[in-house]
Deep mutational scan, measured.
Amino acid sequence: TLFEALYDYEARTEDDLSFHKGEKFQILNSSEGDWWEARSLTTGETGYIPSIYLAPV
């Protein structure tokens, strides 16, 4: 399942991933609670993103 960003997000740590509204992600690991490891389909970068900023596509 792909997810789309509902809002912009600016990374706060080196493990976080910055993204823009409308960016799409492949989720790599969603077992860490509210922060999911994801790969951006726009940039190819991976990192942790807040799941509350996402909606399934």
Results as ranks from 00 to 15, higher is better:
20 H>D: 06
38 A>W: 01
54 L>V: 11
21 K>I: 08
40 S>T: 02
3 F>M: 08
54 L>S: 01
50 P>D: 09
22 G>N: 05
17 L>D: 00
45 E>D: 09
34 D>G: 11
50 P>A: 08
24 K>L: 15
22 G>F: 05
55 A>D: 06
35 W>I: 10
10 E>L: 10
37 E>R: 09
13 T>G: 15
53 Y>C: 10
24 K>W: 14
22 G>E: 03
24 K>T: 08
34 D>L: 12
8 D>I: 02
27 I>E: 01
5 A>I: 02
6 L>C: 08
31 S>E: 10
55 A>R: 11
8 D>N: 08
9 Y>A: 02
3 F>T: 02
50 P>Y: 13
16 D>K: 15
31 S>W: 10
51 S>K: 14
16 D>V: 15
26 Q>I: 15
25 F>D: 00
55 A>K: 12
47 G>M: 06
22 G>S: 04
23 E>L: 01
46 T>F: 06
22 G>P: 00
57 V>A: 08
28 L>P: 02
53 Y>F: 11
39 R>I: 13
12 R>H: 11
19 F>A: 06
9 Y>D: 01
45 E>Q: 14
16 D>R: 15
11 A>Y: 03
48 Y>C: 10
38 A>S: 04
8 D>Q: 05
50 P>V: 04
35 W>F: 10
36 W>K: 02
38 A>E: 00
46 T>G: 03
46 T>I: 14
7 Y>E: 10
29 N>L: 06
52 I>L: 12
53 Y>W: 06
52 I>Y: 14
56 P>Q: 08
49 I>N: 00
6 L>V: 08
41 L>S: 03
33 G>R: 11
30 S>E: 08
12 R>V: 13
57 V>N: 04
2 L>G: 02
21 K>A: 11
25 F>G: 00
46 T>Q: 10
34 D>M: 12
36 W>R: 02
25 F>P: 00
1 T>I: 13
55 A>M: 10
2 L>K: 04
4 E>H: 07
31 S>N: 12
6 L>E: 03
57 V>P: 04
19 F>P: 00
38 A>D: 00
49 I>F: 01
45 E>S: 10
48 Y>K: 13
10 E>A: 11
41 L>E: 06
39 R>K: 13
52 I>Q: 14
36 W>T: 02
5 A>S: 06
46 T>R: 10
49 I>C: 05
19 F>T: 05
41 L>Q: 07
25 F>Q: 00
44 G>H: 07
43 T>S: 11
11 A>Q: 07
4 E>D: 02
46 T>L: 07
50 P>G: 07
52 I>H: 14
30 S>N: 13
56 P>N: 05
47 G>Q: 04
22 G>R: 03
18 S>L: 01
21 K>P: 03
55 A>S: 11
19 F>R: 00
3 F>D: 00
28 L>T: 07
45 E>C: 12
15 D>C: 15
3 F>A: 04
16 D>P: 02
53 Y>H: 08
8 D>G: 07
28 L>V: 09
22 G>K: 04
55 A>E: 10
49 I>L: 08
7 Y>T: 09
3 F>N: 01
12 R>C: 14
1 T>C: 13
48 Y>H: 08
43 T>W: 02
50 P>C: 13
24 K>N: 06
32 E>K: 14
47 G>R: 04
33 G>Q: 12
44 G>W: 07
39 R>Q: 09
42 T>V: 11
30 S>M: 15
3 F>Q: 03
48 Y>T: 07
2 L>H: 06
